[in-house]
Simulated assay, not measured.
Amino acid sequence: MTDSTDGADAARAGSTAEPATGAKGPDELRRQIERTRRQLGDTVEELAGKADVKGRAKTRAADLRDKAGAATVQLRSSAAHAGHGARGRAHRAGGAARERAPGPVTEGEVRSGRRPPPPVLVAGAVAGAAVAAGVLRRRHGPHPHH
């Protein structure tokens, strides 16, 4: 069996065997040594990069932090948008409740015997509006504090 690889192929393949054809003088030998050193240096750099678990973990953690930060911004934006909508609906519901609620009792109403609705009804309407706002807020996520 004959080895048909030259010195460069043997060095690239990581072989420690001597090349089939020797160097043809000291200059050729120096060139082969230099080429082998460069290839060995490249191989050592690749292996060091693969063995640098701490460095790879830091890079991965930084990537995950960036993704989490972007997701947080997006979630806050969505929550703020939902909060503004819920606040608007609650404001409109409160305005409608105020329009329907009776005004202060006048002296004429007291003389005529007409009574305003019991405070329990007014309190119930306000509590209902608050419950509706709470349900809407839960459906759309918590409102972020600014």
Results as ranks from 00 to 15, higher is better:
69 G>F: 08
69 G>H: 09
69 G>S: 15
70 A>S: 01
70 A>V: 01
70 A>K: 11
70 A>R: 05
70 A>C: 06
70 A>F: 02
71 A>F: 13
71 A>L: 13
71 A>E: 09
71 A>I: 08
72 T>L: 07
72 T>G: 11
73 V>I: 05
73 V>G: 05
74 Q>A: 04
74 Q>I: 05
74 Q>C: 07
74 Q>Y: 04
74 Q>K: 08
74 Q>L: 09
75 L>F: 06
75 L>N: 05
75 L>T: 04
75 L>C: 04
76 R>K: 13
76 R>D: 05
76 R>L: 01
76 R>H: 11
76 R>P: 03
76 R>V: 02
76 R>F: 02
77 S>M: 04
77 S>Y: 06
78 S>A: 07
78 S>E: 14
78 S>H: 05
78 S>N: 03
78 S>Q: 07
79 A>C: 15
79 A>T: 09
79 A>L: 11
79 A>H: 15
79 A>M: 06
80 A>S: 08
80 A>L: 11
80 A>W: 02
80 A>G: 05
81 H>K: 11
81 H>T: 13
81 H>F: 09
82 A>L: 08
82 A>P: 02
82 A>M: 03
82 A>D: 01
83 G>A: 11
83 G>H: 06
83 G>Q: 01
83 G>F: 02
83 G>R: 00
84 H>V: 12
84 H>I: 14
84 H>S: 12
84 H>Q: 08
85 G>K: 11
85 G>Q: 11
85 G>N: 11
85 G>I: 05
85 G>Y: 10
85 G>F: 10
85 G>A: 15
86 A>C: 12
86 A>P: 01
87 R>N: 00
87 R>I: 07
87 R>F: 06
87 R>M: 15
88 G>F: 12
88 G>E: 15
88 G>W: 10
88 G>Q: 15
89 R>T: 09
90 A>V: 05
90 A>Y: 10
91 H>E: 15
91 H>I: 05
92 R>M: 13
92 R>K: 14
92 R>L: 12
92 R>Y: 10
92 R>C: 11
93 A>P: 06
93 A>R: 00
93 A>G: 08
93 A>E: 02
93 A>F: 00
93 A>I: 01
94 G>L: 04
94 G>S: 14
94 G>F: 07
94 G>H: 01
95 G>C: 06
95 G>M: 12
95 G>T: 09
95 G>L: 14
95 G>H: 00
96 A>S: 11
97 A>D: 04
98 R>G: 09
98 R>C: 08
99 E>A: 12
99 E>T: 14
99 E>G: 11
99 E>R: 14
99 E>Y: 12
99 E>Q: 12
100 R>N: 11
100 R>D: 13
101 A>L: 09
101 A>R: 09
101 A>W: 04
102 P>M: 05
102 P>H: 03
102 P>V: 03
102 P>E: 11
102 P>C: 07
103 G>Y: 06
103 G>L: 14
103 G>Q: 09
103 G>M: 12
104 P>M: 03
104 P>I: 04
104 P>N: 03
104 P>D: 07
104 P>W: 06
105 V>K: 00
105 V>I: 10
105 V>P: 06
106 T>M: 11
106 T>S: 03
106 T>E: 02
